[in-house]
Write a protein that binds this DNA or RNA. Structure first.
Length: 79
DNA sequence: CTCCTATTTCCTGTTT
DNA sequence: CAAACAGGAAATAGGA
């Protein structure tokens, strides 16, 4: 992924399926797909872990219930 | 083992 | 046309 706006916590997935694979690895689920990961992401809007960013494909923004993305520089990834 | 909630899986329709 | 986006439903996973 790439940061669109580090301060605001806005990022964009460059290779959606690759990200889904990584997510799958972390959850030891080799059959994860972006379609399914994105469904979980959409539930995150509900929980306000993510804020909705419309009109921009593959762009998401961390919400107030998220944490840990402000300090990590050389970290792995994750919300 | 039970409860409960987060996440996954599936699906169908819309939008980009 | 190929990906994303959208949610409802139902099934699971895993932690308390």
């Amino acid at each position: 992924m790439r940061w669109e706006n580090r301060q605001e916590g806005v990022f964009k997935f460059l290779r959606s399926e690759a990200v889904a694979q990584l997510w799958g690895q972390k959850k030891k689920n080799s059959s994860m797909t972006y379609e399914k990961l994105s469904r979980a992401m959409r539930y995150y809007y509900k929980r306000e872990i993510l804020e909705r960013v419309d009109g921009r494909r593959l762009v998401y923004k961390f919400g107030k219930n998220s944490s840990g993305w402000r300090e990590e520089e050389a970290a792995g990834s994750r919300n």
